[in-house]
Design a protein around this nucleic acid. Structure first.
Lengths: 136, 136
DNA sequence: CCTAGTGTATTAAAGTATTAGTACAATAGA
DNA sequence: TCTATTGTACTAATACTTTAATACACTAGG
């Protein structure tokens, strides 16, 4: 059975200010993350989802395009859009870039509060010690 | 001696596509993170930096405003903009509370990007190793 | 009180992002 | 091949973002 739009429960928050295509991306990513969409499975068609959400097909297509750029889905004109069978792998360099990006403002903030880098690092380290006893 | 624009080496990349005000925010954050700007120190004045970068004062002001919203700087009309000094006279317990408060969203963010706590802690640790060789 | 220096508010121009309308193109299967 | 189904391209309308011009308001020091 083909995955239906309904089974994925797509919704749009019109008041959030978040662009429709970004909301779609987010919901696809979440559906993959919690297993509602498995690798190889077909996404709702561009038109099908567009009709269901009462938006233009191009908006859905844009979401799918960005997901393809990120390597999350594969699209085939005339056939459909599918969850990539490949693992989502960003390069180590890309990954480090992201880590730097999100860490920088945190460190700036911590220092603004009078914490030294060393102190913050030690705290983070102490947290890992705690967590390790819980699970993986 | 008041901190000068020159001593912080502000620059704008006109071709990057990154908004000027975001570039300024980034450079202030980095200056704090690596110790070139300490708590209590004054940032370049809105006008001073605007003239130096050949942009409108409002653009600098916008950067400073966002930094204030993030709690990184404090502005006083007629006086200047300063790196926040929120540290004073809090107990160790209060201090740890603050650290937990500011660390929690950071960890949440990092995990949302697929980084494990261990991984983040290790990265922070690696940063301290570098910085320690420089100064306090 | 005045003045030089500081940040702020208002408005407008230009660029960019977002979405939709419409038409086109590729694929699979009868 | 034919046709229904799939994604795509192009264009334009609208809203948002970014920056600047200009004028205003607060503060410290003489």
């Amino acid at each position: 059975m083909k995955p239906t739009v309904m089974s994925l429960k797509f919704t749009l928050d019109l008041k959030s200010g978040v662009p429709f295509y970004k909301q779609i991306i987010l919901q696809v990513e979440m559906a993959i993350a919690d297993g509602r969409l498995a690798t190889g499975e077909q996404l709702p068609t561009v038109r099908g989802l567009a009709v269901y959400l009462k938006i233009n097909p191009n908006t859905v297509a844009r979401a799918y395009n960005e997901l393809e750029i990120r390597g999350i889905v594969t699209t085939q004109q005339g056939t459909g859009t599918f969850i990539s069978t490949k693992e989502i792998t960003v390069s180590d360099i890309e990954r480090e870039k992201i880590l730097i990006e999100i860490t920088r403002p945190f460190i700036a903030n911590a220092r603004a509060y009078g914490f030294s880098l060393k102190e913050v690092a030690a705290y983070l380290q102490s947290l890992t010690d705690v967590k390790e006893t819980n699970h993986a």
